[in-house]
Write a protein that binds this DNA or RNA. Structure first.
Lengths: 127, 127
DNA sequence: TATTAATTGATAATGAATATCAATAAGAGC
DNA sequence: GCTCTTATTGATATTCATTATCAATTAATA
């Protein structure tokens, strides 16, 4: 029941700080550079555990693998539909948006996601 | 290059009209009831083709399988995190939202998604 | 009716993520 | 420090949604 402080969990938590919206694969690749023994399953497990306990953010975009984020406050993202990279959207969160919908037909809204989709500058210059 | 009017494509287009935000599996199940010969791959192919040609909507939510929709105008959805069902959100689309972000750091925004996540009334009454 | 290329059906393959389970090791109590 | 309990790990199998493959079929055109 008690959470244990394992080397692997520590590594996942630290690695998130050094990567920009990585997916689980990218976190794994970064970790195995210096710690080849760590299993991919362990990376997935710890990413999810840390996200559940609100120590990191988990961003499930509308396409592709989930991304993780050292930012835990609500904010929105831009997603490049070519490379899949995420960028923080520099607009304020709609604090009152959900109020318009609370208990719509018995549906209880708990949170909302806003995702902007387009092309990042890198991909624009590549074609 | 020319699009052909196959029985299978017709079936997919018609079936979408009778289902509420179905995923590909549900469209397939509905079709095979009366047409057991139709392949699941064909259903996937036609759903994607019709979506590309804007005849139906494709909704890639932040979790689980993609949903399809006979509505093609932009609108938002509520998603139940228990059963995964989608509901139309009865709020107007933010027409000018993307303007705040156009060319943010070279990123060109093409569209945006708003998704409300919560619990539907059916799932609320079940536990 | 013959031609040709879009489409299909059946199935293999992919990618992301979770499940399984025996082996390991963190942390508590002694 | 040593032992015990059980959270955690590593390795791998499995699941799920979807796409790829490819020979066979068939819609549409001439």
């Amino acid at each position: 029941m008690n959470r244990r402080n394992t080397v692997q969990r520590q590594l996942v938590a630290e690695t998130i700080l050094n990567l920009d919206h990585p997916n689980a694969e990218q976190v794994y690749e970064e970790i195995v550079k210096n710690h080849p023994h760590v299993s991919k399953a362990t990376v997935y497990r710890n990413l999810n555990l840390l996200a559940e306990q609100q120590e990191i953010g988990k961003i499930e975009t509308s396409e592709g693998a989930a991304r993780f984020d050292f930012r835990t406050q609500p904010h929105y993202h831009l997603r490049c539909r070519k490379c899949g990279r995420l960028f923080d959207a520099e607009i304020p969160v709609f604090e009152h948006l959900e109020e318009n919908l609370r208990n719509t037909g018995g549906f209880t809204v708990e949170k909302h996601i806003v995702e902007f989709i387009g092309i990042c500058s890198d991909c624009k210059n590549k074609n």
